[in-house]
Design a protein around this nucleic acid. Structure first.
Lengths: 245, 245
DNA sequence: CGTTAAGTTGAAGGCGCTCAACCGACGTGG
DNA sequence: CCACGTCGGTTGAGCGCCTTCAACTTAACG
């Protein structure tokens, strides 16, 4: 993890801020709270599991995952982050049981926890924006839980592909129909609670059904509507209906 | 759902407030924001799925669940609430895809959403307390996801029993080893993503292994340590390590 | 061109599902 | 007071989704 000077490109937080309705002044305050901008190599830890979060890390570029590893080696991906997502958002107010790891070479902006408690008092709109982001991730988590609990592996995989298509598209990766997939089939299996071998077979089913095509680490939704239908996917939960002005 | 006068027993929010570190003044403000205290019959909706949350509802007494129903009738329990838990916490800042339903006769205190946006501005400590509660529920959700993704039905069931033992104990239901179980086996199956029939069989395995005993809707942990071990359970995530003074 | 990681395929078996019947407790109404 | 309906729990049989193990192929990279 390499540290670079605090004053990186002025729109480092652009993707994150674009989801908020903050005043210029609040935006400035948030930018100033960024202590450093780091680049992280593919696979490298952003924060190890078990260590206390010192920063709120905002994805500037790249893809990362929140991973929980069990003592016997099994692991479960709890979240996937793209540019514009805040990681460890809940850690502003609590502790965390997972680790954060880059899935591609990535750039993150780090804001010290201390600065955030200040926002709670002095910049309610900023606190609100962070809480919103946290709530959005909770909605995604609930969708995953539904997926793991009540969907076949076929629908589950379709759902993940749909969700990533939308989220990656919003983050400027791909156009909502095609996108680069930084997950290996093993990664997918850790996200969906399926064995790697089965991921492979189900992926082929999806291909043969004419729903998606995957080649060279790039996904393309051949028949978006049909895919949405088999996944039971509707993208509403990925946006937040805010109430704060 | 029956409405009763706004000025119920003065310590209506006691269980919720006991998890916070709010000043007397903040507590008073929160109490005053309670618009009404309702009693809800077992099985009755607190908020139907699909309807927009108008209130933050705090459980005063009883047990409730957050339920997501699919169009084909399958359903998944996303959360279980006890006395002291705030429901629809995330809805302060976002919308919700689930419905809330009482699992026992219950009493809830309702705070209008409008009042909460006010807290964001004027009472940061209150906003912090609500966000904390939200983060705690997110940690629980992550634990459930891990459970559904990577644990056998045996361990999953054990984990749920452990979690409820602790949470119900904290809420004043039982002593941490024994507690009344308001879930039917079908409810459990909807929480864990298992078929009702299989819940029954696994429950018997747990009994025969001498880990728990269940009778007359009451659970008793016969061998807590062994149960914790088979569940991979450690209660740390149920508390929040706050940072705000 | 050798080495490693990722993807693919086959075979065998088990965990958990479905279908279906039965039991027991409880509440209601004739 | 008993008959009956309902709901929750229990048990059996058969099947299928998914897992595990293992080998093999392809791609990426020095």
């Amino acid at each position: 993890m390499t540290a670079s000077p605090p004053n990186g490109p002025s729109d480092t937080l652009m993707r994150f801020l674009s989801r908020t309705r903050l005043s210029d002044e609040d935006r400035r305050a948030l930018r100033q709270a960024v202590k450093d901008v780091c680049s992280v190599a593919r696979g490298a830890p952003i924060r190890e599991q078990g260590s206390a979060p010192q920063y709120l890390s905002i994805m500037v570029d790249g893809v990362a995952r929140a991973l929980r590893v069990l003592s016997d080696g099994r692991q479960q991906i709890l979240a996937i982050f793209v540019a514009g997502d805040a990681m460890d958002c809940q850690s502003v107010v609590a502790s965390a049981s997972y680790g954060l790891y880059a899935m591609t070479d990535a750039i993150i902006a780090r804001i010290p926890r201390d600065a955030l408690t200040g926002f709670m008092r002095e910049r309610p709109a900023v606190a609100y924006a962070l809480w919103s982001e946290s709530a959005r991730q909770m909605a995604i988590l609930q969708e995953w839980l539904l997926s793991l609990g009540r969907q076949s592996s076929y629908a589950r995989l379709a759902h993940l592909i749909c969700e990533l298509a939308v989220r990656f598209g919003d983050a400027g990766l791909g156009d909502g129909l095609s996108y680069p997939l930084p997950l290996t089939q093993t990664d997918i299996s850790d996200a969906l609670g399926i064995s790697p071998v089965h991921v492979n077979r189900v992926l082929q089913e999806l291909r043969h059904a004419g729903l998606v095509s995957i080649s060279h680490g790039s996904v393309h939704l051949m028949d978006r509507d049909a895919l949405y239908r088999t996944a039971g996917f509707s993208p509403g939960y990925l946006g937040v209906g805010g109430i704060f002005e």
